[in-house]
Each structure stands twice: as C-alpha cells, then as structure tokens.
Amino acid sequence: MDADTKHDRTVEDCIKNCKPVTDYVLDSCEAIGHTIVNLFLAVGRLAMFMAQSVLHVFLPPFFPRLIGRQLIDIGYYSLPVVGMTALFTGMVLALQSYTGFARFNAEGAVAGVVVLSVTRELAPVLAGLMVAGRVGAAMAAEIGTMRVTEQIDAMVTLSVNPFKYLIAPRIIAGTLMLPVLVLVGDIIGVFGGYIVSIYNLGFSPGNYLTQTWNMMETIDVVSGLVKAGVFGLVVAMLGCYHGFNSQRGAQGVGAATTNAVVSASILILIFNYILTQVFFS
C-alpha cells in the first residue's frame, strides 16, 4: 500500500515538475532568435570594422615603412609555400587530366586544362588558402596578443591610431601582394604541368607550349588576379578583425587565430564562386 502511494506521489511530482511542451517550443525559438541576432550583430561589427579600416587606408598619416615590412612579410615570405603548392598542383593536374583524357583519345587537351585550371581557379584559391593559414593566423595572433597585453590601448594613449598603424598597412599589403603571389603561382603551376607532361608523359615541348599559349586568354589571368586581390583583402581583414577583437588572454588569442583562418577560408571559397559567376557566366 505504502509502495503504491509512494509510486503515485512520484508520478504526480514528475507531472507537476514537467515543463509544458509550449515552454520547450518557446525555449527553442528563443535560442534560434538569439543565434540570429548574434549573427547580425557579428556581421554589423565586421562591416563597421571594414568601413573604418578602408577609410584609414586612404586617410593620412601613412606609414610607408610598416607597409613595406608587411609587403615583405606577406609577399616574400609566402613565396615558398605558394610556389610549392602551385608546382605540385600543376604536376598532379597534368597527370590526372592525362589519365582521364587518354580514355577519350584527347591527350592533347592536357596543356589547355592545366593552364586554364591553374590561372582561373587553382592558383588564386590555393594561394588564398595558404596565405590565410600562414599570414591570417599570424596577424590574428600578433594583434590579439597586443590587444590582451594592453599594447593597443597603450598605442591609443600615445596618440597613435591603431587602425592606421596596425590595420591599414596589413590590408594594403594583403590586397597588393596576393595578386603578385598568384602571378608567380600561375607561372610555377604551368611549369609544373610542363615538367610532368614533357619528362613523364612524353609530350613535345614545342607543342605543349604552343597549346598553352593558344588556349590562354587575358581574361583567364586577369580574373585570377582580381580574385587574388579580393582574397588578400579578405585574409588581411579577417586576421586583423579577429585579432583586434580578441579577449580573455591566451585562450582568446587562440580562438581568434582559429576563427581568422576558418572564416577567411570559407569566405575565399564563397567569393571564388561569386567572382567566377561574375567573370564567366
């Protein structure tokens, strides 16, 4: 009898303590709404940061010495990684396209496929991703560390605008140097395809070069360089943004670095689609 009463009470308590279904629905709606509001807030903050950064790119004072240092950091020191990526991508592309085209007796199209793929897509996208990993992460970590150790605050108290001193030189250098890197990457990538085609697949050097030259148009290279400029801007902007807004010490700097690389990589892929649509639709 006692056990039954206890059981009844437990069931009653459970029913009393249970939240109505409407509460769960409302909680879910609240969580979704909160996420959407936060998303809009983040986009708004990024837009404000971008507007402020771009404004300071064009307004004096300028820091040519710092711009020069960033050009070297982003451009010169990224050359090995971009060069290696382009070289092996061109080589693999030649091998794979040859294997595929051989099934349709279309081996002659290898040179064209290599040059178009490298100049239009692979060099800009892979260089952008590589620079996002190397430079975007370094920017976020450096500026983030400066933020959490109050170096940026110190800069403000010394009458130096951090947007002009830290952000603008990086954005200028990122936007200018990625096209240069991609141009070098184009040449190295095509050269990689040439090496494999000539020494591994037995193509005639003269024919290969003629086909490459005939297939390539100005728009192929230009579209790749425009993409590279946009990707450079995206990498520098997001590296600076996440670093500038990093919080909570070492953990915050780590999170800023990760966010800078991930968000820049995703945006590079999204912008790549948009720009391809604009140029070639």
């Binding site: 820091f63 150790t149 109050e150 170096q151 605050d153 110190a154 010394l158 009458s159 130096v160």
Partner: peptide
C-alpha cells in the same frame, strides 16, 4: 599613461618604445 603590465611593444627595442609616441604620434 603607465599600464599595470607596462604594455611595452614587444617587437620594438626599448628606446623605440620610449620614443614611440614622439615618432609615430
């Protein structure tokens, strides 16, 4: 301003830190 952790610019030499506001500001 003197910051709690000094907030020195770690990529610069000491004299460049002291002269920073004069040169850049």
């Amino acid at each position: 301003m003197l910051f709690q952790g000094a907030a020195l610019f770690d990529s610069m030499k000491i004299w460049e830190n002291v002269a920073f506001g004069l040169v850049q500001g």
